[in-house]
C-alpha cells in the first residue's frame, strides 16, 4: 500500500497538448536535503509557494485536498516543462533591473572596504535571499501587473540602498519611486512574507525603501507615493482619525490640499475620481457632512504631542524582529542592537 498520493500538474509546451494532472501513488522512504539553501526546488504545494526540500510529506498530506498532495509549478512565471518555470524570463530579469551590484564612489581601496559592522546589520535580512522565486510566485500585484519589479528584486534593491559603501542611494531610490511598477506598485498583501523560506520579508524591505525615499530624501514621485504617505500621516496628526474625503486630494497634491488644486496631474486624477465620489454620495454611503466636516478627536493634543516626541529624535527607531528575535522571554531589552537608524 502506497504511503502518499501526489497529484502533479504536467505540461510540455512543445507537445501542443494542454496541461493535465497525473496522480502518483508512491511509497517514499528516502529524504531530501532539507537545507533550504540552493533555492532550486521552488514549487506550489497545495497552492502554497514553497521549497520542496524542507516540506514534510506528512504535513503536506494533512493539508491535501481529497488526500492527494497537489504539486504545481510556481506562479507568475512561464512553465518550461512540468514543474520547471523560466526563472530567467521573470525573476532574474527583474533582479537585473535593480542594478544588483555595489556602486561605490571613487577608486577602489588598496585592500578591502572598511565599514562599521553595526552599519551592515540592517541589510542582513535582505542578504539572506536564496533566489528561489517563492515570493515572485506568490506575489498578488505581479498576478495582475506582470511588469511589477516584484518582491525578490526590490528586496535585493534594499540590500544595496542600505549598504553604507554604496554611493548611489538617492539615485536608486529615485529610480524605484518613479517607476510606475516600482515600490508603489506593491499592494501590501503580505504574500511574500508568508512564503519566504528564509524570512527575508520582502514586503518589509519594500516599506524600508519607501521610508528612505520619502522621509530621508523627500522624493516626490509621480505615482503619488510620497503624497499618499504624507497626507495619511498629516491627517492623523491633525484629526486623530482618518478623513477619507481629504486623503484623496491631499495624496494627489504631494500632501497639500492647495497643490492638489493647482498641480495639473493632480487635477486630472481628481476629475477622474468624480464619478466614484458622486456614486458614494448617491448611495448614502457618504454624506456631504462627513465629506466636508471632519471632527478632531477629543484628546487630539495628545496625538500631536506623540508625533512631536517621536519625530524630534535625530535617529529613526526601528525594531526589526528578524535581527533582535523575541527577547522578552528573558525580559531583557536588546532594542539598540536591532534598530535601523536613518
Amino acid at each position: 500500500m502506497p504511503d502518499y498520493s501526489l497529484k502533479i500538474r504536467r505540461y510540455n509546451p512543445e507537445s501542443g497538448q494542454p496541461a493535465y494532472w497525473q496522480q502518483f501513488d508512491v511509497d517514499l522512504a528516502g529524504c531530501s536535503c532539507q537545507a533550504a539553501i540552493c533555492g532550486s526546488c521552488g514549487v506550489r504545494i497545495n497552492g502554497m509557494s514553497r521549497l520542496a526540500c524542507n516540506t514534510k510529506l506528512g504535513e503536506a498530506a494533512e493539508d491535501a485536498p481529497n488526500g492527494a498532495i497537489v504539486v504545481e509549478p510556481m506562479g507568475n512565471m512561464p512553465v518550461l516543462k512540468d514543474l520547471i518555470v523560466d526563472m530567467d524570463a521573470v525573476h532574474w530579469k527583474k533582479v537585473q533591473r535593480v542594478v544588483p551590484w555595489l556602486l561605490p564612489e571613487g577608486d577602489p581601496p588598496d585592500r578591502e572596504y572598511i565599514v562599521d559592522p553595526e552599519s551592515m546589520i540592517d541589510i542582513t535580512q535582505s542578504m539572506a535571499c536564496i533566489h528561489c522565486g517563492a515570493c515572485v510566485s506568490a506575489c498578488l500585484s505581479m498576478e495582475v501587473d506582470p511588469e511589477f519589479i516584484g518582491p525578490a528584486a526590490l528586496a535585493k534593491a534594499y540590500r544595496f540602498v542600505g549598504d553604507p559603501r554604496d554611493a548611489f542611494t538617492e539615485d536608486r531610490l529615485l529610480d524605484l519611486a518613479e517607476d510606475p511598477h516600482g515600490i508603489y506598485d506593491c499592494t501590501h498583501c503580505f504574500a511574500c512574507i508568508e512564503v519566504c523560506p528564509k524570512d527575508v520579508a520582502p514586503m518589509n524591505q519594500i516599506m524600508r525603501l519607501r521610508r528612505r525615499a520619502t522621509s530621508d530624501y523627500g522624493i516626490k514621485d509621480g505615482n503619488n507615493g510620497y503624497g499618499h504617505e504624507k497626507a495619511f500621516s498629516d491627517l492623523i496628526e491633525k484629526y486623530g482619525l482618518l478623513s477619507e474625503a481629504q486623503l484623496l486630494p491631499k495624496s494627489y497634491g504631494d500632501g497639500s490640499l492647495i497643490r492638489a488644486q493647482v498641480k495639473p496631474a493632480a487635477l486630472k486624477e481628481l476629475t477622474a475620481k468624480l464619478p466614484t465620489v458622486i456614486r458614494g454620495l448617491r448611495s448614502g454611503k457618504v454624506s456631504p457632512k462627513t465629506a466636508l466636516i471632519h471632527r478632531k478627536l477629543k484628546d487630539q493634543d495628545q496625538i500631536r504631542r506623540m508625533y512631536k516626541e517621536v519625530e524630534s529624535h535625530e535617529d529613526r527607531l526601528e525594531l526589526n524582529l528578524y535581527i533582535v528575535g523575541d527577547s522578552d522571554a528573558e525580559e531583557e531589552g536588546t532594542m539598540a542592537e536591532g534598530g535601523q537608524e536613518g
Binding site: R211, T214, E229, S233
Partner: peptide, 10 residues
C-alpha cells in the same frame, strides 16, 4: 500600514 511605513515608532 501607512504610518508604520512612515515611522514605525510612531
Amino acid at each position: 500600514g501607512f504610518i508604520s511605513e512612515h515611522n514605525q515608532e510612531l
